[in-house]
Simulated assay, not measured.
Amino acid sequence: MSKIAISIGDINGVGIEIALRAHKDIAQWCEPIYCVHSEILESALALLGKEEVFDSVLRSMCFSPPAVGFLENLRIQAGEISALSGAYSYESFMQAVRLAQDSQCDAIVTLPIHKKAWQLGGVPYVGHTEALGAYFGVHSIMMLGCESMFVALFSDHIALKEVSPLVKDSDVRDFLVCFARSVCLNEPCCVLGLNPHCGDGGLMGNEDEEICRAIKEANKILKKDLFFGAYPPDSAFSPLNRERFRYFVSMYHDVGLAPLKALYFEESINVSLNLPILRTSVDHGVAYDKAYKNDASLSLTSYFNAVKYALKHQKNKKDFL
């Protein structure tokens, strides 16, 4: 049975409750290894008022806790941004990474962190993707979606004003080739332009001409027509296009993820590509407003899909370099 390391995310958010509620199902598919201290989960159970309900679940869990020197000061503060919770979620994540790097697990799945808490906790990265890229010394590609639609991001967590200077044909070409190899792409992929109407022949910028050149060069390198475009971003996700394409590449974060989340918010996951390990994640935040309230609306779908994707694709992780 495959082993999946689970980083617990921000302990002040919904991650722990998701892990506890989903464990019985997840344990039927794989051997989950939770990167958290059992004492933290026991505290969470007390806050949820579920000690008796989840007692057998807790005893069946396998732990690989991160080595931290501040555990005695760490307390769950439901719905609060905390430097210690940020630092702990990062250490949990890095423990999962080390397990994967040492081949003690087949992939890692991450529960949600809070970016501000990471910053307060002294973590020098915006999020998981950037941390993985820095750790392995490569460009980590962020792809989000579900089996119905996946969106890869040429640029992700940067300011919009910084995107345009990055759109050069050689850089976009290299990204497309790397992405295709990372996901073993064997079906057509729609590449979005940057400007309204793809620049209207240069009337609104020439970045889209760079994208079109990159597409031709990437297909030539791959010896197959896999990438098509550039498509105007406002119509790229039309029903007709979604019948033709399951994979999309967006030049920046929001134009690609807005339609994805409108269509598949609860189903969507986050995947980090171009790495020697496979990392998947839920595609939602810490939901502080729902934390430790036994909220019946709390969905497990994204978490289930993240684990299923990891199990399905972990055998191809060596192709992600």
Rank of each mutant, 00 (worst) to 15 (best):
I158Y: 00
P232T: 00
D234S: 13
D225T: 14
E209S: 06
C212L: 12
D169G: 01
A159W: 01
L240M: 13
Y231V: 03
C189E: 06
E187V: 03
H139C: 10
C212D: 00
R242K: 12
L160H: 11
F237A: 03
K161L: 11
E187H: 07
F248E: 03
D171V: 04
I215P: 08
G201L: 07
L203C: 13
E187S: 14
H197W: 04
V151W: 05
Y247T: 13
V249Y: 02
Y247A: 12
C184H: 15
V138E: 11
P239K: 11
D200I: 10
P239G: 08
D208P: 05
C184W: 12
M251T: 09
D225H: 15
L226C: 06
G205E: 05
F179M: 11
A218I: 07
I215Q: 08
V177C: 08
S235H: 03
C184D: 15
P165H: 08
L153M: 09
A214G: 05
M143I: 00
A214F: 04
F175W: 01
E243P: 01
S140V: 05
D254H: 14
I141V: 06
V191T: 10
D174S: 12
H139K: 15
P196A: 13
F136E: 08
L144G: 07
K220W: 09
M142G: 03
L166G: 00
E187P: 02
G205T: 09
H253W: 04
D234Q: 10
L192A: 08
P196H: 06
S235I: 14
S182Q: 00
R242I: 01
S170T: 14
L226D: 01
D254A: 09
P239L: 07
D171I: 03
V138Y: 04
C190M: 09
E147K: 10
Y247G: 07
D171W: 00
K161Q: 14
A218S: 08
A214N: 00
H157Y: 02
S235K: 04
F248L: 14
F179G: 06
Y135Q: 12
S164N: 10
E210K: 12
E162G: 09
P196N: 05
L185E: 12
L144H: 06
C189G: 10
I221Q: 08
R246Y: 03
P239S: 08
F175R: 01
G229A: 05
H157Q: 05
I221L: 11
E187C: 09
C189M: 12
D208I: 14
Y247P: 11
Y231T: 02
G205W: 06
D171R: 09
L166N: 08
D225Q: 15
L153T: 01
Y247S: 11
L222R: 03
K224E: 15
E209N: 10
M143T: 02
E210N: 07
M143E: 12
D171C: 00
C178S: 13
S148G: 10
G199M: 09
R173K: 15
C189N: 05
P233W: 11
F248S: 11
M204H: 00
L222M: 09
P196W: 02
L192R: 07
A180M: 03
A152N: 01
